[in-house]
Simulated assay, not measured.
Amino acid sequence: MHDMIMRVGQALLMALGMAWKTGWTLCLGFVISSVLQTIVPAAKMQRYLGKGSAKEVALASAAGAASSSCSYASAAIMRTLFKKGADLVNALAFLVASTNLVLELGIILLILMGWQFMVAEWVGGLVMIALMTLLVKLTRPTKLIEEARQHEESGKGHEHGSMVVEGETWKDRLKNQQTPVRVAQNFAMEWSMLWKDLVAGFLIGGFIAVFVPDSIWQALFLTQEPGWVQVGTNALIGPVVAMLTFVCSIGNIPLAAVLFAGGASFGGVLAFIYADLLILPLIDAYRRYFGWKMALYMAAALFSAMAVSSLLMELVFSSLNLVPQPSGDIRAQLTQFSIDYTFWLNLMFGAGAIWLFWLNYKNPMHHGHSAHHSHHHGSEDHSDNHNH
């Protein structure tokens, strides 16, 4: 009994460590999403990201790379982009880039798993965007896309998705005295929709890291099979494991290190890292945002791109003899806290989040009025931006 209590405590500490590593990125991502909802009218989004051209895909990818590194926050931003008129290809390019091409994710990979994983993550992310773009353009379900764009979101807060404050330009809207209040309202709404998924994800990830022995991972990732069998199947198994472990982007990296140490192949671990966009709580979020049909379509397109990209990275890095060896005790690293850059970033962004929650508390959203206000200014923004 005492041993079990100790292991449960270790699992909870592991979950806390995962949450600690990702806390500031969650705050950053939700702030970006909230600002987009507040100052970016649909006409502007249609103008810059509405067609799905190669230039727009590159722009969306660059915006994603400069954005949040947490899959939950990135999904919220992607939802905003798509609902405001961005082409599906561009919205998905942003989603993939924001969870695979961001700097902080690469830094954590470099520290915990080596430069090879960092490079493979970034190069593989670009390959994944290219593959996903090609796949969506070949199978483009036009009717489904329009239905998803108009889908009324289930759960709280679906009415506020199109609210834009007054102002002819984005600078005017940013300077509007109501902008901080509206951003705070949207920020609080994002957290209210996803906090349960986040808590569940970190807890599951922590318990898996502590209670699942390496022998299970070795059997699951077929470490005893010939190399060509392991490489091919791991590219498919990696995303499935990610779907069932519920951990978001940066939080995936410590668990990925556990998998790599346990015997998973290089490509299989990359597929696991890529697939933080396919965890079950996120697929459920896609359902709430767009409906079941679009959620499943997105999942299938992302899964295919992830599997092929991870397989290509495995083949390239193996042919160049660049696949690293597992090293270090990742479990120990996760449960050791120190005053480092994560501490200061969490302190800074945590203070900002508290201020936004306080501002929302002092100015609660009135749904009936907000829905009317949203519709009114949505039409104004459309006409204003058409003329300007």
Score class of each variant (00 low, 15 high):
110 L>P: 04
174 L>E: 00
65 A>G: 10
212 V>S: 01
319 S>G: 15
376 H>M: 11
366 H>K: 12
265 S>G: 15
178 Q>S: 09
30 F>Y: 13
291 G>T: 07
111 I>E: 15
118 M>L: 13
25 T>H: 14
304 S>L: 15
371 A>R: 10
322 L>G: 11
71 S>I: 03
285 A>G: 03
54 A>L: 09
272 F>E: 08
26 L>M: 13
338 S>M: 04
233 T>P: 01
315 L>I: 15
358 W>P: 10
151 H>P: 08
110 L>I: 14
312 L>I: 06
258 V>C: 08
130 A>V: 08
331 R>T: 10
225 E>L: 15
323 V>I: 14
206 G>D: 02
318 S>L: 13
211 F>H: 09
346 N>R: 07
162 S>N: 08
17 G>T: 02
72 Y>L: 12
21 K>L: 15
27 C>L: 09
253 I>N: 00
301 A>Q: 10
3 D>W: 12
177 Q>S: 15
354 I>N: 10
295 A>M: 11
85 G>I: 01
307 A>D: 04
11 A>R: 03
2 H>G: 05
380 E>Q: 15
321 N>V: 01
382 H>L: 15
36 L>R: 12
44 K>S: 07
186 N>P: 11
2 H>C: 07
374 S>I: 03
195 W>V: 06
12 L>Q: 05
21 K>N: 09
178 Q>A: 08
317 F>Y: 12
188 A>G: 10
388 H>N: 05
317 F>W: 02
258 V>L: 14
45 M>P: 00
103 L>M: 15
90 N>E: 03
285 A>T: 03
237 I>P: 05
15 A>V: 12
279 I>P: 09
36 L>C: 12
310 S>K: 02
209 A>M: 06
113 M>H: 00
60 A>T: 04
87 D>W: 05
116 Q>A: 11
35 V>D: 09
333 Q>M: 13
329 D>C: 12
100 N>G: 10
292 W>C: 01
318 S>D: 08
90 N>L: 08
151 H>N: 03
58 A>W: 02
51 K>R: 06
36 L>T: 14
43 A>I: 09
274 Y>T: 01
118 M>P: 00
218 Q>Y: 00
352 G>N: 00
284 D>K: 02
200 A>L: 11
182 R>E: 02
47 R>I: 01
165 V>P: 00
230 Q>I: 11
294 M>H: 06
229 V>E: 04
89 V>R: 14
358 W>H: 14
382 H>F: 10
296 L>P: 03
321 N>L: 11
281 P>G: 10
290 F>W: 07
45 M>S: 03
27 C>R: 08
339 I>K: 06
13 L>N: 02
58 A>P: 01
220 L>Q: 03
